[in-house]
């Protein structure tokens, strides 16, 4: 139920500094609580209603449009340093509802609900006729490309064996028979070169994540054999002080529903 039934709300300009301040706190909260997909950045404040709250404070009821960045949700890079996914890369938009409490000059997020959706194929075609569309992450070519890229990474690795956390995005380029994938990985307690049965490897207690971009080019009439390319960035282990306000990814990330563009919070 909306807060404080019976009292009227104060309308506020969406570009008012107070609206912007509340929106930035909401975005910071969102990105701190996202563990799959990509960080999001504020694109537009759609609506703001400011409800009085008994006994004190006000609740900002906000609708915010966001855009996906190119930084994975588990990447420690500050979102201000992350590029916004361009339309030609098949942009993904977030639609968020937030309730943000303002009390004693401090903003605190009370409620957040976001959904993300990729740009339409038609709009992408208008911007870039030849750019590849996002592909479903459970597409067989995508699954195959992720397996091949992760195997190639672990084969080259002198350290821990990394296992797959999630497939974040994928695109198929039919012209060159190439599948491009981006996926998140996590270090396990196995040594990559000694792994015989990956099922026996367990995630490290102190989580160490990484993010990979890979491609698999199938053998075709022009080239004799399959070609795999992969580059991974392994993130430093995030020291988590006990009272850290930052949410830590759950031990076992919940299975994301297989949809285009992972669902946000």
């Amino acid at each position: 139920a909306p807060p404080n039934l019976g009292l009227s709300y104060r309308a506020l300009d969406c570009d008012d500094p107070e609206s912007e301040q509340a929106a930035l706190v909401a975005m910071d909260y969102l990105n701190k609580n996202l563990f799959r997909g990509y960080k999001h950045t504020l694109n537009q404040i759609d609506k703001v209603k400011v409800w009085p709250r008994r006994p004190m404070g006000e609740v900002f009821e906000m609708e915010i449009d966001t855009l996906e960045t190119t930084c994975h949700a588990l990447d420690p890079t500050p979102v201000a340093n992350c590029s916004v996914r361009s339309m030609a890369e098949h942009a993904v938009e977030g639609d968020c509802d937030f309730h943000v409490l303002k009390q004693d000059g401090q903003f605190t997020v009370l409620f957040a609900k976001c959904d993300s959706s990729p740009d339409s194929a038609e709009d992408l075609r208008k911007v870039c006729p030849d750019c590849p569309l996002l592909a479903p992450v459970n597409n067989t070519k995508v699954v195959r490309a992720v397996e091949a890229a992760l195997t190639a990474f672990n084969t080259q690795s002198n350290g821990s064996y990394f296992q797959l956390v999630e497939v974040s995005r994928a695109q198929l380029v039919y012209l060159t028979h190439t599948t491009y994938v981006e996926f998140a990985i996590a270090a396990t307690d196995c040594v990559a070169k000694e792994v015989t049965d990956p099922a026996k490897c367990n995630l490290l207690a102190e989580k160490q994540y990484g993010f990979c971009k890979g491609s698999l080019t199938e053998k075709g009439p022009l080239n004799g054999n399959e070609k795999v390319a992969v580059t991974c960035t392994v993130f430093p282990i995030q020291p988590q002080p006990d009272n850290s306000p930052v949410a830590t990814p759950p031990a076992k990330l919940p299975e994301a529903p297989v949809v285009l563009g992972p669902l946000l919070l």
């Binding site: 309308a11 969406c14 537009q44 404040i45």
Partner: peptide, 27 residues
């Protein structure tokens, strides 16, 4: 405008600018 007597009612219609500005691009 229907408002509680204690709430000051703006003299004329106050235009609220929403949605706000687009910071990157609209899809």
């Amino acid at each position: 405008n229907v408002a509680q007597p204690s709430v000051a009612v703006a003299a004329g219609p106050v235009v609220h600018l929403c949605p706000g500005r687009i910071r990157h691009f609209k899809i």
